[in-house]
Amino acid sequence: MTATALAPTAPAADVPVAPATPFRRRALAVSTVVGGLLTAAGFAATEWESGTDKLSYLDSLVVDPLRSQVAAVLLHFGYCALVPMLLVLAIMTRRTWRVAGNVGLALSMLGALSLPGLLVTDFYDMAIRQNLPADQAVAVSDAAQALPLGVLISGPMIMLTFVGMILLSVAAWRAGFFHWTAALLVVVANVLPMAAPVGALPNIAMGACLGLFMVLVGVAGLRMTDQEWVSGTRGAGR
């Protein structure tokens, strides 16, 4: 046997903590908290459509153009925090429930990277509605959504992100860093649009659920010790 093979494995609590660890842990966690607040604010600021047809959506953007722009910017930066949030959850599962954590991260990442960029379409749809008659505006917007490769950055990818978030939440709970009930917020956020597809209240509630979930993940990351962050072991460094 080599000397390396004979060396005892260091306990999780004794894993060295690099000098950059505290800053990086706090940066990811704080970004997640701020992103959750921005996401909830973006949903609250949105002028929601009163119907399920495309024209209702386009008309809602031009009711108050400044408000629509503010909402899109808030949601863009709020959604940017989905990636640090996923990383926080993945770090919680680096030792316990690793397989579930890895699968959840893989399912979530592509959609999370796509979501912020989708908000730019609000600006284009707003300009289309402001500069074209209603029927032409609807035709142009529908034509853009009908392009075949668009599905790769919308619809199914977004749904996989929420599935992955739930799986990561359960894995983080099993690892001892997160409470399983927080995953219900993601479930509610997905069910609300299906139960009540139009109206401001269900959409604002959806944003509040998603934002609160992100805040809870960020707070859980802030409460971790640096030893827990590095080792993935609950109770390390306490």
Results as ranks from 00 to 15, higher is better:
V170S: 11
S114V: 07
V163I: 14
L168A: 03
N131P: 02
N131R: 12
V120H: 12
M159Q: 13
I166H: 11
D142A: 13
I153V: 15
L167D: 05
A172T: 09
L118S: 15
L147N: 02
R174T: 00
M157P: 05
L132C: 01
I128M: 11
A143T: 05
P133Q: 08
W173G: 14
I153Y: 11
P133R: 02
A134S: 12
G150W: 00
L118W: 10
I166M: 15
A175I: 06
L152H: 07
F177L: 04
S169Q: 01
M126L: 14
G176Y: 10
V163R: 00
S169T: 11
S154H: 01
L113N: 03
R129S: 07
T121M: 09
V170R: 04
F123V: 09
M165A: 12
G150A: 02
A172M: 07
M165Y: 08
Q130D: 10
I166D: 12
Q136Y: 04
V120G: 05
G155M: 08
A144K: 11
M126K: 07
I128Q: 07
V170M: 12
D142P: 02
L160M: 10
W173L: 00
V138M: 08
D122R: 11
R174K: 15
F123P: 07
Y124P: 04
L152E: 01
T161C: 13
T161K: 02
A171I: 03
I153N: 10
D125G: 02
S114M: 01
L147E: 15
W173N: 09
V170A: 11
F123Q: 05
M126Q: 15
S169Y: 02
V138A: 10
A137E: 08
A139V: 04
Y124N: 08
D125Q: 14
D125V: 05
P133L: 03
L152I: 06
G164V: 01
L147P: 02
S169V: 04
A134N: 13
R174A: 05
S114R: 00
G117K: 03
G164T: 04
A171H: 06
S154K: 06
L167V: 15
P156A: 00
D122M: 06
A144T: 06
R129M: 13
F162E: 07
M157D: 06
I153M: 11
P133T: 03
I128V: 15
T161V: 01
F123K: 00
V138C: 00
R129Y: 09
M165G: 15
L113P: 01
P116T: 00
L160W: 10
F123Y: 13
D135L: 11
V151F: 07
P156D: 03
S169A: 09
Y124L: 15
M157R: 06
Q130E: 15
M165S: 09
F162M: 13
P133M: 01
Y124K: 03
P156R: 02
M165V: 07
G164L: 04
A175W: 05
Q145T: 03
L119D: 13
V120S: 11
A171D: 11
G150Q: 13
L118I: 14
I166S: 10
L160P: 12
L149E: 05
V140Y: 11
A143Q: 13
L160A: 09
V170T: 10
P148V: 04
V140A: 13
P116M: 07
T121P: 00
P116A: 00
D135H: 06
A143G: 13
V151Q: 09
R129V: 07
A143W: 00
P133N: 06
M157C: 08
T121N: 08
T161R: 05
L118E: 08
